[in-house]
Simulated scan of single mutants.
Amino acid sequence: MDNWLAIVISLSYLVLFLSLMMAFIRMALGPTLADRVVALDLIAFITIGFIAVYTLDSGQRAFLDVAITLGLVAFLGTVVFARLIAKRVSEERE
């Protein structure tokens, strides 16, 4: 049973890493600011995924507090960026 869990955790790390690389590419190449904001938000949530998988791997529950805090900060950052984008769009229309 432990071998099965180790395989799943290793695959999870691999998939999260590939997702992180694709999100970095989108953030670098994103044609619009909105694409970059979404990619940055995705990077934050992939990092939360890494923390969750590491918590399963190590058995230390203290890292879940870090993941929850990062999720809240990422959400607030997304709201701020959305307001910034909305403000820019409304200024361009005027």
Rank of each mutant, 00 (worst) to 15 (best):
residue 2 D to F: 14
residue 3 N to G: 13
residue 3 N to H: 14
residue 4 W to H: 14
residue 6 A to G: 09
residue 6 A to R: 13
residue 8 V to P: 09
residue 9 I to L: 13
residue 11 L to E: 12
residue 12 S to T: 13
residue 13 Y to E: 09
residue 13 Y to L: 15
residue 15 V to W: 06
residue 16 L to Q: 00
residue 16 L to W: 01
residue 17 F to M: 10
residue 17 F to G: 12
residue 19 S to F: 07
residue 19 S to T: 03
residue 20 L to G: 13
residue 21 M to D: 08
residue 26 R to L: 10
residue 29 L to H: 03
residue 29 L to C: 00
residue 29 L to F: 11
residue 33 L to F: 09
residue 34 A to M: 08
residue 34 A to C: 02
residue 34 A to Q: 12
residue 35 D to T: 03
residue 37 V to D: 06
residue 37 V to M: 11
residue 38 V to D: 06
residue 39 A to D: 14
residue 41 D to N: 13
residue 41 D to R: 04
residue 43 I to M: 05
residue 44 A to R: 03
residue 46 I to A: 04
residue 46 I to S: 08
residue 47 T to S: 11
residue 47 T to C: 09
residue 48 I to D: 08
residue 50 F to S: 00
residue 51 I to N: 00
residue 53 V to N: 01
residue 54 Y to F: 09
residue 55 T to E: 02
residue 56 L to Y: 05
residue 58 S to L: 01
residue 61 R to Q: 07
residue 61 R to Y: 03
residue 62 A to Y: 08
residue 63 F to K: 02
residue 64 L to W: 06
residue 65 D to S: 15
residue 65 D to L: 14
residue 66 V to R: 00
residue 67 A to V: 04
residue 68 I to G: 04
residue 72 L to T: 13
residue 72 L to H: 10
residue 73 V to R: 11
residue 73 V to G: 11
residue 73 V to Q: 06
residue 74 A to F: 10
residue 74 A to Q: 02
residue 75 F to H: 09
residue 77 G to R: 06
residue 79 V to N: 10
residue 82 A to Q: 05
residue 82 A to M: 04
residue 83 R to N: 11
residue 83 R to K: 11
residue 84 L to S: 15
residue 86 A to D: 08
residue 87 K to S: 12
residue 88 R to P: 12
residue 88 R to W: 15
residue 91 E to W: 14
residue 93 R to G: 08
residue 93 R to W: 05
residue 94 E to N: 13
residue 94 E to W: 12
